[in-house]
């Protein structure tokens, strides 16, 4: 029963090798979906290209449905998976800052790595910026720490915090996504084409 490495079904030594393999697949898919192009990424905010929305939500839904099916069939213990911890205000403030950075720079860290690999100079500068940003964060850590460590709600899921039925939530979530895809296509037809 999965997850395999935490349950010692695969020796821990394989972890790094598996990491590289997963990384290769991840990078390949991101690049092949066009995420190495900042103008394509930014398109989602101006309505001329919704690739980010489509890829992102399709991936989220496919993975969540798949994980819950695997949990249901007993291949995977969903309670053993790493759940991103919730620090309420850190998540909101960090997210807002990242959003501005996203529009300004046109990449997020994963996609910028892809763009770095295919020689986009703006991505090199962007990665430099990220490193600088992390450096600034660490230097200012004493100032930021109350936000960073405050409002900790635990490693919770939506099921814990709202007491929702996960299956119904996934169902509604996928319908929302499909509606979003349809709306995205309609918007794209309305918006002036931008070539990049």
């Amino acid at each position: 029963m999965g997850p395999l490495i935490p349950n010692h079904l695969i020796p821990i030594e394989w972890n790094s090798i598996i990491a590289i393999i997963i990384g290769i697949a991840f990078g390949f898919v991101l690049e092949a979906s066009g995420f190495s192009s900042s103008r394509k990424l930014a398109g989602v905010f101006y309505g001329y290209d919704f690739a980010v929305l489509k890829v992102f939500f399709t991936a989220a839904i496919v993975s969540v449905i798949g994980l819950y099916y695997m949990d249901y069939l007993g291949y995977l213990d969903i309670t053993q998976l790493y759940v991103h911890p919730t620090y309420l205000w850190a998540a909101i403030i960090g997210g807002v800052i990242m959003g501005v950075g996203f529009v300004a720079g046109g990449f997020c860290p994963g996609t910028s790595l892809c763009a770095v690999a295919i020689g986009k100079l703006d991505a090199w500068v962007y990665v430099g910026g990220i490193l600088l940003g992390i450096f600034m964060f660490s230097e200012l850590f004493n100032v930021i720490e109350p936000i960073y460590d405050g409002y900790f709600l635990g490693n919770i899921t939506l099921i814990d915090s709202f007491d929702w039925n996960p299956y119904w939530f996934i169902f509604i979530f996928s319908i929302i996504a499909i509606v979003a895809f349809a709306v995205a296509d309609m918007v794209r037809k309305k918006v002036k084409k931008v070539f990049y």
């Binding site: 501005v100 910026g129 964060f137």
Partner: peptide, 13 residues
């Protein structure tokens, strides 16, 4: 954008 994203990504973990 990179600086902002780096900062934000650390705050939001």
């Amino acid at each position: 954008g990179g600086i902002l994203f780096g900062l934000g990504a650390q705050i939001a973990r």
